[in-house]
């Protein structure tokens, strides 16, 4: 019990002292997850909006597919990306396994279906209200997708933040494709897993505190966005 209290004290000291090792890990985590979410948004937003607006054979199947991918376990994503990038895999020649790039790709794969599925739902809910107005203006499918994406911007940002929350907190994918190499591919979640198993609770707790703080900030942003949207009549 004393150990535990001491660990907590040390954890806060590490955070307060801007411990360089600690902040190297935090910076890498943020870099990986922000880039992954950026890629996932660039793919998932137009993909989801297109699924909501377009009518093509097999659309129902595509919707179910992306909804199912939303619940994909990170370790499975990690495993698939690992198989792609492993030496014998189809993309093995790129030599990306155990690199930051592989981690970004894995998290992007994890988050894209989340953003796409949420976007599809949001845009589909908004479409009936807009459809006839846009059609009398002669808007084609592309103009319709762009207009709906812009007019749903507040809710979509919330979806993107949800994706970020999932990326920064997952451990299964990055540990498999990144390998948790010290100073190279070690991020917050993989560091917590390792340090805890080693018994170095102080660093693990310090990272845990930061992760919780990030979750709080993300949720604060989501709430702020909701309030702003409501205040502007955009809900």
């Amino acid at each position: 019990m004393q150990d535990f209290g001491a660990a907590f004290g040390e954890a806060f000291r590490l955070v307060a002292a801007f411990d360089p090792d600690l902040f190297e890990i935090i910076a890498l985590s943020l870099r990986v997850s922000l880039l992954a979410v950026f890629i996932a948004a660039a793919v998932g937003l137009p993909l989801g909006a297109t699924l909501a607006v377009a009518r093509f054979p097999g659309r129902g199947g595509a919707v179910v597919f992306f909804n199912a991918l939303m619940g994909l376990p990170p370790v499975v994503v990690g495993l698939v990306v690992y198989l792609l990038f492993s030496r014998a895999g189809p993309l093995g020649a790129l030599g990306l396994l155990y690199t930051v790039t592989a981690m970004i790709i894995a998290q992007a794969v994890l988050v894209t279906p989340i953003i796409a599925a949420l976007t599809r739902q949001l845009i589909e809910d908004m479409k009936p209200e807009y459809e006839e107005q846009l059609r009398v203006l002669g808007a084609g499918p592309f103009a319709m997708v762009m207009t709906l994406l812009w007019d749903a911007r507040y809710s979509l940002l919330t979806a993107v933040l949800a994706g970020f929350g999932r990326a920064i907190a997952e451990v299964g994918a990055v540990i498999i494709v990144g390998g948790n190499i010290n100073h190279v591919t070690r991020v917050m979640t993989t560091a917590i897993a390792l340090e805890t198993s080693k018994g170095d609770l102080a660093l693990a707790l310090a990272l845990g505190i930061i992760l919780v703080a990030i979750a709080l900030v993300v949720n604060g942003l989501v709430m702020g966005l909701r309030d702003t949207a409501k205040r502007m009549g955009y809900a």
Partner: peptide, 20 residues
């Protein structure tokens, strides 16, 4: 056709206000 659609103006019973 869609190209000539803008030449017809339609004010709907329930106005559609864009979120702007």
């Amino acid at each position: 056709d869609a190209a000539r659609a803008p030449r017809l103006g339609f004010v709907f019973q329930k106005p559609v206000m864009l979120r702007r």
